[in-house]
Simulated assay, not measured.
Amino acid sequence: MSGKIIFFEESNFQGRSFECVSDCSEIASHLSQCNSCRVESGTFIVYNQPDFMGQQYLLTRGEYPECTNTFGFNDCIQSCRIVPAHRGLFKMRIYERPNFEGQMHELTDNCNSIQDNYHMSSMQSCNVMEGYWMMFEQPNYEGRMFFLKPGEYRNLREIGSNDMKFNSIRRITES
């Protein structure tokens, strides 16, 4: 895993800074707040709450001068996780109901609309076999998002919120 992100207390890369090259569960232990950041290498997931909780946003190499407006967070960045580089196949199974029940489809590529492409009224569980993925609340990779690493997700409502539905999925191919 290699990546580097620099967090700044103020917008437009002002104020004190903190360089991060790995997961950080609590940015507040390094900075009083975080309102801008610069990704120098790698891919990161940032969260609006400590301990990798709350709303998430995927960051790739680039500058983010105003975090609250850019990410739609009501608050500043509180924690971050590096996304490991994945070289190889991508594979996941999505299910219509919790506990891997109901209609099932296997994905190896991005899906801009689960309902349109697979005629599923809902996606409530999944099994990520290979690669790292982002699920989005709305079609065409919009709305709130959620990071998925390899593993079983028996009830997606438990990881999001009870009213959240996932309608599109994208592979994380940048490193």
Results as ranks from 00 to 15, higher is better:
80 C>M: 06
44 F>H: 07
157 R>V: 06
73 F>S: 14
119 H>S: 11
172 I>S: 04
16 R>K: 11
72 G>Q: 12
134 M>P: 12
19 E>D: 09
123 M>L: 06
139 P>E: 00
172 I>N: 04
48 N>S: 10
91 K>Y: 04
57 Y>E: 11
13 F>V: 03
23 D>K: 09
173 T>V: 09
148 L>H: 08
56 Q>T: 12
159 I>D: 03
8 F>S: 01
6 I>H: 00
24 C>L: 13
115 Q>M: 08
104 M>E: 04
174 E>T: 10
145 M>W: 03
164 M>G: 02
159 I>C: 07
146 F>V: 05
83 V>L: 11
8 F>W: 02
97 R>S: 14
24 C>S: 14
97 R>C: 11
1 M>N: 12
2 S>R: 14
42 G>K: 00
52 F>K: 12
7 F>A: 02
11 S>H: 03
130 E>L: 15
83 V>C: 11
80 C>W: 00
46 V>L: 03
63 E>R: 15
165 K>V: 01
57 Y>L: 14
44 F>W: 14
117 N>H: 15
79 S>N: 10
46 V>A: 06
155 N>I: 02
71 F>V: 10
29 S>K: 13
118 Y>D: 11
96 E>R: 06
41 S>D: 00
52 F>W: 13
4 K>Y: 03
151 G>I: 01
59 L>H: 02
67 C>H: 02
80 C>Q: 03
50 P>C: 05
99 N>R: 10
28 A>T: 15
64 Y>F: 13
43 T>G: 07
106 E>N: 05
129 M>D: 11
25 S>V: 12
44 F>E: 10
174 E>P: 03
80 C>D: 06
95 Y>A: 03
151 G>R: 05
157 R>Q: 08
29 S>Y: 08
86 H>Q: 15
87 R>T: 11
131 G>N: 09
82 I>L: 12
1 M>W: 07
54 G>Q: 03
84 P>R: 07
16 R>H: 06
75 D>Y: 05
31 L>P: 05
122 S>C: 06
61 R>A: 09
175 S>R: 08
156 L>H: 02
155 N>M: 02
48 N>L: 13
171 R>H: 06
100 F>G: 07
170 R>G: 06
67 C>G: 05
1 M>S: 13
88 G>F: 11
20 C>Y: 10
71 F>S: 07
154 R>Q: 08
165 K>T: 04
153 Y>E: 08
92 M>K: 05
38 R>M: 12
75 D>K: 14
28 A>P: 10
140 N>Y: 07
36 S>E: 03
31 L>V: 03
89 L>S: 15
98 P>L: 09
97 R>M: 14
41 S>C: 00
103 Q>V: 03
17 S>T: 13
163 D>K: 09
95 Y>W: 05
89 L>C: 15
56 Q>N: 10
153 Y>C: 10
162 N>V: 14
107 L>Y: 04
173 T>M: 13
142 E>I: 00
100 F>Y: 13
24 C>D: 15
85 A>E: 12
117 N>G: 06
136 F>S: 08
117 N>Y: 12
27 I>S: 02
72 G>W: 02
51 D>N: 15
37 C>L: 01
88 G>K: 10
174 E>H: 10
58 L>E: 01
54 G>T: 00
166 F>C: 08
100 F>I: 08
168 S>R: 07
171 R>W: 07
11 S>K: 07
